[in-house]
Design a protein around this nucleic acid. Structure first.
Lengths: 133, 133
DNA sequence: TATTGACCTTCCCACGACTGGAAGGACTAT
DNA sequence: ATAGTCCTTCCAGTCGTGGGAAGGTCAATA
């Protein structure tokens, strides 16, 4: 299977698949003409990675998860730990964003948004120094 | 005021301040010895930017907001629009992360995390192709 | 006066995870 | 033979810094 077909079936851009080979996540065979030749196992791996990426796992997490997936003697605790750490980072990020959202939605509400220059949003930003941020 | 003092007062690393000069956000004077010489207005701008960055605005948003801040004839509608667009992106990002969080916390809960290899987390990732992701 | 040590300068490289594009070879259909 | 599509490699760019090298400047001390 050439890279084009593989890209279509895995849902990943061909560029991304080449990149994954570069960094050693996958290792497709090569045809006589130099083209990459993907097998079912490669496609499976790519779909695995795509799903993990969609859940926000980093490439290095993906590498670890793939290794665990292929290790029949793994302990599920190792997988769970990676997922829990990732979940923690996600929760942290959500909290950060919600804090921004809270402040911003207050400011946006307070701004009448007309032709006049007075604006509590700019007021907040400009007051940063006085408030020591 | 040298860059070190400015960094301390603005809460921004000196590296970051130099970068902001590079991309034209600020334009401090230079002393005879070649050192940057920051005035009160520069410090004010930097604090403004730091606050905007803390609220998640992109550098380009910061550039626009600074320009509006310095334009006495601005319309608050222009500021509000930038803030609202940014707020929209934040809400989108939060929704994405929450969707990941939902899935991941379910999976983590379902994984008993012991010495055995069976793991619903890996099961989910591996099933990506079958489910067409 | 000489010499530390702290500060400043510019420059280039690295990060994460791709993405775009150029230059050129391979294959298929007309 | 030619056109068009696919494939290859390689290089550069993204965003907002952070790290570090090589070298100039300044204030304080021996």
């Amino acid at each position: 299977m050439n890279i084009g077909e593989t890209a279509e079936k895995s849902g990943l851009p061909a560029k991304t698949i080449r990149y994954y080979e570069d960094i050693g996540l996958i290792a497709p065979l090569r045809s006589a003409n130099g083209y990459r030749d993907f097998g079912a196992a490669d496609l499976h791996k790519l779909a695995f990675i795509a799903r993990a990426r969609a859940l926000g796992f980093s490439i290095e997490d993906c590498r670890s998860l793939l290794a665990l997936y292929e290790d029949a003697g793994r302990a599920s605790a190792d997988v769970k730990r990676i997922a829990q750490e990732h979940l923690g980072r996600i929760e942290e990020k959500i909290a950060q964003l919600q804090s921004m959202q809270d402040t911003l939605s207050d400011l946006v509400q307070a701004c009448c948004g007309d032709h006049r220059p007075d604006c509590p949003i700019l007021g907040d930003l400009a007051g940063a120094l006085t408030r020591k941020i």
